[in-house]
């Protein structure tokens, strides 16, 4: 427990150790710690930015979806309108066609009817002559009386 030259040696060690610690331990380690600190801070800032961008992107996407829906609705509405228009067109075309066919059928019927009437008229005059022959029990010359018969047939 004597104070001796050990004290001076210890002081020398002390000063050398502090110098060494400052130069080779403290400076590089603290530099690394600070560098990491800034890296982390930058990373956090970047993450926040990314989150903001994502938020904006999502909002934009939502807007796009809304727009697309509106557009789709418009298109569907137009298509429906066009469809009903087409149906209407087809209906009217069919009506026209139907009435045209009906008219031509009527005309034909009329013609057929007239034809049948003509034929009937001829047969009626023959029947009348045959009937008269039976009644008069004698031959009537159809040629002689054709004028009369024609008049009869016209009356029918």
């Amino acid at each position: 427990m004597n104070i001796n030259v050990t004290l001076l040696w210890q002081m020398v060690f002390f000063i050398v150790f502090v110098w060494f610690s400052r130069k080779f331990v403290w400076a590089p380690i603290l530099a690394a710690i600070n560098e990491r600190r800034t890296t982390i801070a930058d990373g956090l800032a970047a993450a926040e930015k990314g989150q903001q961008a994502e938020e904006e992107g999502r909002k934009q996407a939502e807007q796009f979806v809304v727009q697309a829906k509106a557009q789709a609705n418009e298109i569907i509405g137009k298509a429906e309108k066009r469809g009903s228009e087409l149906v209407e067109e087809a209906k009217s075309t069919a009506k026209d066609e139907g009435s045209r066919i009906l008219n031509s059928a009527r005309d034909e019927i009329e013609t057929e009817l007239n034809k049948a009437k003509e034929a009937l008229r001829g047969q009626v005059s023959e029947l009348a002559v045959a009937g008269a022959k039976q009644i008069l029990k004698k031959e009537i010359d159809p040629k002689a009386h054709s004028e009369l018969l024609d008049q009869l047939a016209a009356k029918l």
Binding site: I3, N4, T6, L7, L8, Q10, M11, F14, I15
Partner: peptide
């Protein structure tokens, strides 16, 4: 000696 060496430093 050691403790005084450091405290005097």
């Amino acid at each position: 000696n050691v403790t005084f060496g450091m405290s005097i430093g």
